[in-house]
């Protein structure tokens, strides 16, 4: 059965790859790619930290993630405040920034078409106690957001975290009985090399949530996500299509690399990468630029590095 998700900006038919974008001028490639997102994707994803400025019109539904992954970055940590998890980001020379679930929900209610609760990933090797604390705080944040949301037309996805497969299973069981519109599995990026593990987590979570949509945070490898879509995942988001392009690389073909891509070559690579991971068809006129034509291949091969 094909699942779908209705939002105020349109219906998303699953499976769907949701490209990550940023607002503002953090990454020069983003403003170039953004106007083309409606041609290659059903929706776009932006994270809380990159959605602080003016919101450009995308003409497709906007997913807004909490940005909880920042607890994995240097200077990031999770603190408890009145039973809820707060993200603290401390950078040298700057005052510590505390992000409360309320701030995240406020922004989401202003700009989002689909919202994700503030959750905290548990990378492999994390202390078990810390992992349990993060999972518990993630769950608390999810339940808090569900009870405090004001916009009824804003689908709310609960973040599902864990250290091991069992942890993910327990986490989703604690939330599945609530009226979340969907669920999102986090913490998969550092586990993505272990396809079997990721598949198992997805299967287990799917079993618990019935026919509600299931999103995967941070996965953009075309071969992996197509398998995961077959195993019950409905959507996945990633910025790999951009990161690869910025580095002159094609997704799914790492043997070729343009060592010195021009801005438009980066743009064309990003669109090509997005087309390869998404389910959209590309106009035939664009294929010459987006896929390696004989000429382009010869240009690339001159600059190949292994």
């Amino acid at each position: 059965m094909t699942r779908e998700l209705k939002t105020r900006s349109g219906t998303i038919k699953f499976p769907a790859f949701i490209p990550v974008t940023t607002f503002g001028n953090h990454f020069p490639l983003d403003p170039l790619v953004r106007p083309y997102l409606p041609l290659l994707a059903q929706a776009a994803m932006v994270s809380y930290p990159y959605a602080q400025g003016p919101v450009p019109s995308l003409r497709i539904p906007l997913f807004v993630d909490s940005g909880g992954f920042a607890c994995l970055l240097p200077g990031g940590r999770v603190e408890e405040e009145d039973g809820l998890g707060v993200l603290v980001i401390e950078r040298e020379g700057e005052e510590a920034r505390r992000i409360h679930p309320r701030e995240v929900l406020d922004l989401q209610e202003r700009i989002a078409d689909v919202a994700f609760t503030l959750d905290f990933p548990c990378p492999p090797g994390l202390d078990k106690n810390e992992a349990s604390r993060r999972v518990a705080l993630s769950q608390a944040n999810s339940l808090w957001a569900l009870r405090n949301r004001r916009r009824r037309d804003l689908p709310l996805f609960a973040g599902v975290q864990g250290l091991y497969v069992d942890g993910y299973r327990e986490s989703v069981r604690a939330l599945a009985g609530e009226h979340f519109d969907g669920f999102a599995i986090g913490g998969l990026v550092p586990r993505a090399r272990n396809h079997q593990l990721v598949l198992e987590i997805v299967r287990d979570v799917r079993k618990e949530i019935g026919e509600r949509p299931l999103h995967l945070f941070g996965l953009g490898q075309p071969d992996l996500i197509s398998r995961l879509f077959l195993e019950g995942a409905d959507s996945a988001d990633s910025s790999s299509y951009l990161r690869f392009a910025a580095d002159g690389r094609q997704l799914g073909n790492t043997s070729l690399r343009n060592r010195d891509p021009s801005p438009t070559e980066r743009l064309n690579l990003a669109l090509r990468n997005l087309a390869s991971v998404g389910t959209f068809r590309v106009p035939l006129s664009a294929t010459g630029l987006l896929w390696a034509s004989p000429h382009w291949r010869s240009q690339m091969s001159r600059q190949i590095t292994t």
Partner: peptide
């Protein structure tokens, strides 16, 4: 134009 907009047809 075609590099800036690879979706444009001539």
């Amino acid at each position: 134009m075609l590099r800036l907009n690879p979706f444009a047809r001539v």
